[in-house]
Design a binder for these strands. Structure first.
Length: 166
DNA sequence: CGCAAGATTATT
DNA sequence: ATAATCTTGCGA
């Protein structure tokens, strides 16, 4: 079963946790999501949407279950999924996956390089897109949380979630 | 309009 | 620890 607006119309932190173990499908290739981070709006200084809607961040205020792709450091793309109702800025960054065909892809830049994700994957509707969506799967109970990666503020927020290595 | 900083990664 | 590399968004 495909996960759509109902699944993503929830608190970003909740969605980030729930996404662990779910199946990310890109161009027919399946991968298990094993690392995510939540980003929100005015209460989250590390978020692109912290200072309100801008040309880049406005999609975070849009309807849930859309993809949000952006380029970072001039060389890497990051894949996010919009959460929470329209008007509330929130998204989940897909940081790591277990690709069945290849190996482990830990890190949003590596992930996007593997799937050849570019700006044409931006603002897709996961309810209806054929190239990018998420399939339901059993939720992961054994996870850890920690501070997010690559940010300089809001390090007190433990909004990064990943499989507990055991 | 110019400039510093950035949700990263590979290399030294 | 730092370069690679370019878009974004703030300040002027």
């Amino acid at each position: 079963m495909r996960l759509g607006s109902k699944f993503f119309n929830d608190h970003a932190v909740t969605v980030a946790r729930n996404l662990l173990g779910k199946i990310l499908v890109i161009n027919g290739e399946n991968a298990i999501i094993n690392e995510t981070e939540a980003y929100r709006g005015y209460d989250d200084p590390a978020s692109h949407a912290f200072r309100g809607p801008t040309p880049r961040s406005s999609i975070m205020f849009g309807v849930p279950a859309q993809s949000y792709v952006y380029m970072i450091y001039g060389m890497y793309f990051c894949l996010n999924i919009i959460c929470e109702p329209e008007g509330i800025a929130a998204a989940v960054l897909i940081r790591g996956i277990l690709a069945k065909t290849s190996n482990v892809l830990n890190g949003p830049g590596k992930l996007c390089r593997h799937f050849n994700i570019n700006m044409s994957y931006h603002a897709l509707d996961l309810n209806t897109s054929d190239v990018l969506y998420v399939e339901n799967a059993p939720s992961i109970i054994n996870y850890n949380s920690s501070s997010r990666v690559g940010i300089s503020t809001a390090k007190d927020k433990l909004w990064r979630f990943y499989f507990k290595p055991e």
